[in-house]
Amino acid sequence: MSSVGTTPVVATAMGAATGDAMASATRITPGNALRPEDIAGKVAAGSVVVPQDVASYALRLGDDALILAQRLGWWVSRAPELEEDIALSNIALDLLGHARSFLSYAGGAWGKTEDDLAYFRGEDEFCSAHLVEQPNGDFARTIARQLVVSTFQHLLYNRLVDSQDATLAAISAKALKEVDYHQDHAYQWVLRLALGTQESRRRMVNGLDLTWPYIAELFDDDELIDRLEGIAVRPSSLRVAYDCRITQILAEAELDVQEVPRAAGGGRSGRHSEYLGHILAEMQVLAREHPGATW
């Protein structure tokens, strides 16, 4: 998972608790996992400097995780089983943790906190992909979205642990372990829904159909990615592995990959689906009613 080469870099950048830097307190030691507060502290103290481009990239990763967490949070008290209330809220909680870390880091470039970025940016300043903004729909549609996002994020973080940017690598190392479970959760449900009953299969197929148009955007490269060679992961470079993994899962579920026209996308540059405004309206309403307040 984490290559030996990056470990000491991370320990130096984020600060190892005690002793051997190779033990990497921030990435491995139980009880010393990297927390958003640690990142915010380092950034505020100036011990970690965040270049603008790196911040913009971190913002994309953070916004994807934040908007998806916001979506999944809806399921709490509405899931098909109590176990799924727990599973979906746990996944949302993991994603929220990733978002907080990425946003805390990104904010360092502009003197902003995670909350400044989450609550006081307008819709066109968000850079989430359209996929994570899509409605939850029924359980199958949520699972279809989870399958795609968790597969994508797993491949992404698996590469990002080798980033030359120590903080991105450290956040990714923690996220990777969690996304591994998200992927398994989605995979297990795709099998059950696709091979369970006629009704569940119909819904699973429908959920995937609604999801397909939004996949391509995840793999789009742009100039920011060009400028971050060695730091960011080039999205298009993940496509082959992604297709391979998804094809495998769908084959096991006796489902086909549909060839559908891609949706236009544009989320990375602030052109969003109609859904995002509503998501933000809910998320930001209280914080904006009380500007300057702390909670």
């Binding site: 958003p36 934040l66 916001q70 949070g73 809806w74 709490v76 008290s77 109590l82 209330d85 727990i86 809220s89 746990n90 949302a92 909680l93 929220l96 943790g97 978002a99 907080r100 946003l103 995670e114 909350d115 989450a118 609550y119 809910e282 998320m283 309403v285 209280l286 914080a287 009380h290 307040a293 702390t294 909670w295």
Partner: peptide, 22 residues
Amino acid sequence: IGRAPSLKRKAILMAKVQDEAG
């Protein structure tokens, strides 16, 4: 959960509701 006024509070609340399901 959807309207928690800071991300930290949102995380704490989510964890709490999850505990209740548990």
